[in-house]
Design a protein around this nucleic acid. Structure first.
Lengths: 134, 134
DNA sequence: CTTTCTTTTTAGAATGATTATAAACTATAT
DNA sequence: ATATAGTTTATAATCATTCTAAAAAGAAAG
C-alpha cells in the first residue's frame, strides 16, 4: 500500500502536496521529531520544486495527526514537536543539548498507577526523562 | 519566614507586586496549576487594587520558577501551565474535561529506566497519564 | 533623611508560531 | 465534460509571550 492508498484509506485525497509531505516525513530509515516551521523550510529549500504554503503544511500535519500517522509531543511548552514514531514510547530530553531521544516502552519497567479516577479510563501513559551532562 | 524574607533569601526584592503575587499563588490550602495570562487577570480583577502589569507578572513567574518556587509543566503544547506544587509528582490530564490533576510520586510504582545515555545523568522523571470518560 | 546605585515596574511595541479567511484550484464521481 | 466537495494558497489576524527604554522604588551609605 503506497502513500496515495494510505491517504485515500484515511479519507484524504492524495494531492501533490500531501504526497511530497509524506515522502519527506515517512520515506526514511528512522523515525524523527520535527517542528512544523522546520518542515515548511525543508519542503521548500529545493528551489526547483513548487513551494508548498505554510497553511497547507500545518493543515496536513494536523490531518496526519488526526489519522494517527503522527504524534504530537508534550516536551517543552515553547516548542511544539511532532513525532513520526507512532508506537507506544517515551522520551529523553537532554537539557544540555536540547536534544530529544526516543525511549522504547520495553526499556521501561512496567508502570503501575495506584491512583484511579472514578468514571475515567487511562488512554495513555507517557514518560519524560530529563537528562543532563554528568 | 514570611514571603518578604523568602524573596530576599532568593535575592529578590520584596516589592508590593511580588508580595501580592506570592499571596495569590502561595497563600492557599492546596497547590494549583495556572496559566500566566489567567494569573494576570486574577490579580487585576479587584478594581480597588493598583493594577500589576503583564510584564511584571511574566517576569515574576519566571523569577519564581528560577528560584524553585514554581514548576513549569509539559502537558499540552498549546498551554503553558505553571504549578505551585514543587514536590516530585506526576499528572493526570483529563482529555474529556481538559482538567489537570496531580498524581503523587508515591502513587506510582517505582519507574526503572533500563536504557542509559553515555555521559548523561537523569535529572527528572515525569509521567503524564491521559484519561478520558469510561 | 538625602543621595546614589541598582533593581524593578511599566505601557506599549514587537515577535513568532499558529490559525483564520475566502478566493482559486483540483481530484473524483457522475 | 460537468459538478461538487475537498484542498491549496497568500495574506491577514490572533494571541501568548518577550522586548524596550524610561520612570519608579528598594537598598545602602553617608
Amino acid at each position: 500500500m503506497d502513500f496515495a492508498d494510505k491517504l485515500r484509506a484515511s479519507g484524504l485525497r492524495p494531492t501533490k502536496q500531501r504526497l511530497r509531505i509524506c515522502k519527506t516525513l515517512f520515506d526514511r530509515d528512522k523515525t524523527f521529531h520535527f517542528l512544523v516551521k522546520d518542515l515548511v523550510e525543508t519542503l521548500n529549500e529545493k528551489t526547483e520544486d513548487q513551494k508548498i504554503s505554510v497553511a497547507t503544511v500545518y493543515n496536513t500535519v494536523h490531518a496526519f495527526k488526526k489519522s494517527g500517522y503522527l504524534k504530537q509531543l508534550n516536551i517543552d511548552p515553547n516548542h511544539n514537536y511532532f513525532d513520526t514514531n507512532i508506537s507506544h514510547h517515551h522520551h529523553f530530553f537532554d537539557e544540555s543539548t536540547k536534544e530529544l531521544i526516543d525511549l522504547n516502552n520495553d526499556q521501561v519497567e512496567k508502570i503501575e498507577i495506584k491512583k484511579t479516577l472514578p468514571g475515567k479510563t487511562i488512554s495513555s501513559v507517557e514518560i519524560l526523562v530529563k537528562v543532563e551532562n554528568k
